[in-house]
Every structure is written in C-alpha cells, then in structure tokens.
C-alpha cells in the first residue's frame, strides 16, 4: 500500500479571530495553530492502521510555509514514514489542491486521505479537487474504510443517514468522525519524528481564481431576553410574535 495523507493547520478552536487594518488579512499574531482535527484524528490514524496491518508506506503532505513544520512533525510523531511540504501559502482550496495533485500525479498512491474539512474555512473542497485533477473516484465524509486486496468497502455520512459503497484503489477519501480513534504521540514517536525525512518542494506556478475581498466580524447579539421560568406561554408568544420563528 502506498498511502498519502494531506495535513493542514488551523487556528486553535478557542483562538480569538481578528483581522489586520485592511480587513482582508487574518491577524495571526498570538494565534495558536493546531493540526486540523479531522486530518489528525481520523485521516492519519486510519491510514496508519492500514499501513500497520497491510504494510507499505505512508507519506504526509502539506502546503504551507516553514511554520507548518511543527504540525508536520507532530503528524510524523503519530506515524508516517516521511513528509513533503510544498513551500507555498495555501491561498485557496484550488491552489492547494493543484499543488498536491501535481506532486501526487507521478507517485501512484493507492489511497489519498484528507480530513472532511478544515475548521477555519470549512470548505470541504480540496479532496474533490485533487480527485478531479487526478481523475480518481472521491468518497467524502467516510466513517469507515475496510480493504481486502484493492477492493474497499466504505461507509459515508449523507444527510440524515449513511451510504455503504464499494470502490477499487486508487481513490481519494475524506475522513469524518468514526473512521478511527484519536492517537496521542508517544515519546518514541516524537524522537523518531525528528529524524524522519521532510522534503521541501517548491510550488508550481498557478494563478488563483478567487481572493478574499474583506472579512467582517458578525454583529454582536443585542443581549439575551430572560423569561420567567414559570411563564413558558410568554416564551412561546415571543417566538411567534416577536421572533416569528414558529
């Protein structure tokens, strides 16, 4: 098995979100970054389990600057033989996908894993784009993946239910909760991660098709209206007459 796992960084879930003066640039000062939870908890761990049972190689790939190496090393500490960092700002999903597809196209991976979405821009787009560039099947929101030979059986979340399907490798898959159980890197892994190869590759030229014109912070709520716990008729009246939601 030759496996590739796409890992990205996102601001820590509790990070305070603010923007620079132009309102078009995220203010990263003081923001703690983490590995995107879906990449770390589900995509990486399921890929690792497959490597452990079936043998093969597991490579991590990231599109990002040198500051992303901390996240890549954490990934290597959880598991993974080597890593590739494409040295570019992941300015849009299309740009990111193009870079990963360009690297992967001559490598013949059996499975390319992603998280179901990044928690900062919540696009859920990169996996579908890579699959299209490489002309591969794409299975999103996978909650389980079983392999026998090159035949995979996958369950995926759909609105209000689940779908079970069969597909043969190679394919691209995005991992949701259920795929695996989170693993905490141990000391041995952390030591080994330092010596595992991390290759830096320069990006190919690619003109982006979208840019952020501006960011805005949502309007603050005007304040909660407290209702007497004895008077639920009043709450219902307000929901009907004032809020007009029932």
């Amino acid at each position: 098995m030759k496996l590739l796992v796409c890992v990205s960084k996102t601001p820590d879930t509790t990070a305070k979100i603010s923007f620079l003066g132009d309102n078009a640039t995220f203010n990263s000062a003081g923001v703690q970054y983490i590995m995107n939870p879906y990449d770390e908890w589900y995509a990486l761990v399921r890929a690792l389990e497959l490597k452990e049972t079936l043998g093969g190689t597991l490579t991590l790939i990231n599109v990002g600057g040198a500051e992303d190496e901390q996240i890549i090393r954490k990934g290597l500490a959880i598991g993974g033989d080597d890593a590739v960092r494409i040295n570019a700002n992941p300015q849009s999903a299309l740009y990111t996908a193009k870079q990963i597809a360009e690297y992967a196209k001559n490598e013949n991976y059996d499975i390319i894993f992603l998280g179901k979405e990044t928690i900062d821009y919540n696009g859920s787009e990169v996996g579908a784009m890579i699959a299209e560039y490489l002309d591969l099947p794409y299975i999103s929101y996978a909650t389980s993946l079983e392999l026998s030979g090159n035949q995979a059986v996958i369950s995926r979340d759909i609105e209000g239910g689940a779908e079970v399907l069969e597909v043969q490798t190679p394919f691209v898959i995005s991992a949701a909760k259920g795929m695996a159980e989170q693993r905490i890197p141990n000391m041995k892994g952390i030591m080994q991660a330092r010596t595992r190869p991390l290759k830096v590759v320069e990006p190919i030229a690619f003109e982006d098709q979208s840019t952020v014109a501006q960011f805005e912070l949502p309007k603050a709520k005007t304040g909660v209206k407290l209702i007497n716990a004895e008077n639920m008729d009043e709450l219902v009246r307000l929901l009907h007459e004032e809020a007009k939601v029932i």
């Binding site: 601001p11 900062d120 919540n122 982006d208 952020v212 014109a213 805005e216 949502p218």
Partner: peptide, 15 residues
Amino acid sequence: SVFSGKAVAEYELKS
C-alpha cells in the same frame, strides 16, 4: 461564514 461562524468573509471570484 468562516472560522466556525466567528467571522464572515467576502470573496471575489475572478474566473
């Protein structure tokens, strides 16, 4: 909506 609902982004599509 971006950053888990903590901000709104306006994008310009150029293609």
